[in-house]
Computed example of a mutant assay.
Amino acid sequence: MKAILYVCHGTRVKEGEEQAKQFIERCKEEIDVSIQEVSFLELSSPTIEQGFRTCVEKGATEIVVIPILLLTAGHAKEDIPQELQQVQNKFPHINVKYGRPFGVHQKIIQLLLQRISETKKEIQSDARLLLVGRGSTDPDTKRDFSLIVEALKKESSFKDIDVCFLAATDPTFEEGLIKAKQSQNSQVFVVPYLLFTGVLMKGMQKTLKNYSDEQQEFILSNYLGYHPLLEEVLHERVYEQIVSDGRS
């Protein structure tokens, strides 16, 4: 019997954990698989092992594991597979298939533009966009953001688009803001490429208060969040694994 195990990142912020669980519950309703469980890589529960065991206890013989992550970086390529290997060693009779994170996707580009639109600010001709990622030492992160920038330039009126990161890699958020400040663009739209709420957003809000003035407005959009567009992307990631062996 087939099961799906969703692996979210996890957070110390209870609101972020609940948002993830609610997102998975909504997605489960549209997927015709009887066993579907949620788990977390760190900081929240149930853990990957607990979620895996629950699937097995419910009768699963094959488990499709879907990482609820925005990009393909260290968590997706190393941390989750390592956890799964340890668990699978305890259940060698279970067939495990590992799916893809959301990745660079046109629907996420649409969501970014929607978040900018939701600020209710008219975009000036010289407006600059600063895209803020969580950050990773994995080189694929910068590659993916380059693809996102290319897509945004095609889909929007922004001529100047920069990327910065909150941790682990350069340029830092502070460096991105300083560059934007020096650019003298009349508007700087700061767009967090983050999946859930947490201390990072609160820190960004506090930092930006020191940057806006009469000549230059810094505008913080909402983070991506567990939006219906992401539900559609998740459905794609699930079904590409379910049908990959020729069975529905």
Results as ranks from 00 to 15, higher is better:
I4D: 00
Y6D: 04
H9T: 03
H9R: 09
G10Y: 02
T11W: 05
T11Q: 05
V13D: 12
K14S: 12
K14I: 13
E15N: 12
G16Q: 06
Q19R: 11
K21L: 14
E25D: 13
K28R: 14
E29I: 14
E30L: 14
I31Y: 04
D32P: 04
S34R: 13
I35Q: 00
E37Q: 14
V38I: 15
S39H: 00
F40D: 05
L41Y: 02
L43G: 02
L43K: 11
P46Q: 12
E49I: 10
R53F: 03
T54K: 15
T61D: 09
L70W: 00
L70E: 02
L71H: 01
K77R: 15
D79H: 07
Q86A: 14
H93W: 08
R100I: 00
P101R: 04
P101H: 03
F102W: 07
V104A: 05
Q106L: 12
Q110K: 13
L111Q: 04
R115F: 05
I116N: 00
K120C: 13
K121R: 14
K121Y: 14
R128V: 07
L131S: 03
P139W: 09
D140G: 11
K142V: 11
R143A: 12
R143E: 12
S146G: 15
E150H: 11
A151F: 03
K154P: 01
F158G: 03
I161V: 15
I161T: 08
C164D: 06
L166C: 11
A168T: 09
A168M: 09
T172G: 06
E174V: 12
S186F: 09
S186P: 01
F189V: 08
V191G: 03
T197M: 08
L200C: 02
M204F: 11
K209M: 15
N210G: 08
Y211S: 10
S212V: 08
Q215R: 11
Q216R: 10
E217A: 14
I219E: 04
N222E: 14
N222H: 15
Y223D: 05
L229I: 06
L234P: 01
D245A: 09
